[in-house]
């Protein structure tokens, strides 16, 4: 073959982009994990990292393994989904929940809270502690969902590296804490093991914002820094799902850089605490 006929540079990227498209299609058709509408620049970075660390020469080689060897799936998923977070990340968000949202939630005899895309559970345990501090834990059922089974297992275990505790504690205090974080964990060989009573009212479940449907009527949905990984069409799908899952006047909390501004579902929500991206479901 005449080497002069094979351009490099941008064309090389072109081939890689085709391979990525095919790989995501294979992942969907074979295992029903749908990353096809994830924001492409991020997913490409993660796939490049997976390709290099899993030792594949190309995405086509990775696709071949993925299709024929199901053991490749969990390894790849851990690159595509796992987010490391913090407990009480963005303390002002939790303070706003505590001071502005909780007084409304108190008026309900029973509550349902959904942590969508719970990853390793940092946000779930934060909310569970906050609801206990506010005296609402006994009447609240939490749903913690994610698409990654490994992440769900980690969330259910509630074990974090001890070196993260200082940051978690600082965040917790800034959130308006009414107790000490150390009331909720025991230190064990460099790990902080969180009290299992914090998850006695938690349902951990596999659920995809891309392909699954409404499963309960919620009073609060917290889904932070998940939608930024979606393209606009998929963001819209997820926001429609949240709209349909929320009780009348229910609350939705998004990440600090996420907004409904570009969404078709914006009219269904009103700003509740604007600077913290906390919205309230409206009748439309």
């Amino acid at each position: 073959m005449d080497a002069a006929l094979v351009p490099d540079g941008p064309m090389q990227n072109g081939v890689e982009d085709i391979e990525i498209q095919l790989l995501l299609e294979a992942l969907y058709q074979r295992y029903h994990y749908d990353f096809r509408h994830y924001a492409r620049a991020s997913i490409k970075r993660r796939l490049l990292q997976a390709r290099s660390q899993l030792g594949f020469a190309s995405f086509s080689a990775m696709q071949d393994h993925l299709l024929h060897d199901p053991a490749t799936l969990p390894r790849l998923l851990n690159y595509l989904t796992v987010q490391v977070s913090e407990m009480f990340r963005d303390p002002s968000y939790f303070r706003a929940l505590r001071e502005k949202v909780i007084p409304h939630l108190r008026t309900y005899p029973s509550l349902k809270v959904w942590v969508a895309g719970c990853s390793h559970g940092e946000e779930l345990y934060s909310l569970s502690i906050l609801f206990r501090e506010e005296g609402l834990d006994q009447r609240t059922l939490f749903y913690a969902t994610d698409i990654n089974p490994d992440a769900l297992r980690a969330a259910e275990a509630g074990v974090y590296p001890l070196e993260q505790i200082r940051k978690f504690t600082e965040n917790h205090q800034k959130s308006g804490a009414r107790s000490s974080l150390s009331d909720y964990y025991t230190a064990d060989y460099g790990r902080a093991v969180f009290d299992k009573s914090l998850r006695s009212q938690v349902v951990f479940s596999d659920h995809s914002l891309v392909t699954d449907a409404v499963f309960a009527e919620m009073h609060l949905i917290s889904c932070r820094n998940v939608l930024i990984y979606f393209d606009r069409a998929l963001q819209d799908r997820a926001l429609g799902l949240f709209r349909d899952s929320l009780a009348r006047k229910g609350f939705l909390g998004l990440g600090s850089k996420e907004s409904l501004r570009f969404s078709a579902h914006a009219p269904a929500f009103a700003d509740f605490v604007r600077e913290e991206k906390i919205y309230q479901r409206q009748d439309v």
Binding site: R45, R46, K257
Partner: peptide, 21 residues
Amino acid sequence: APSDYHLLVEADRSLSLSMDE
């Protein structure tokens, strides 16, 4: 880029943010 977020450029000429490590 906002603090504490990565800033990425998408092929469709839009911007996206990420909380990746």
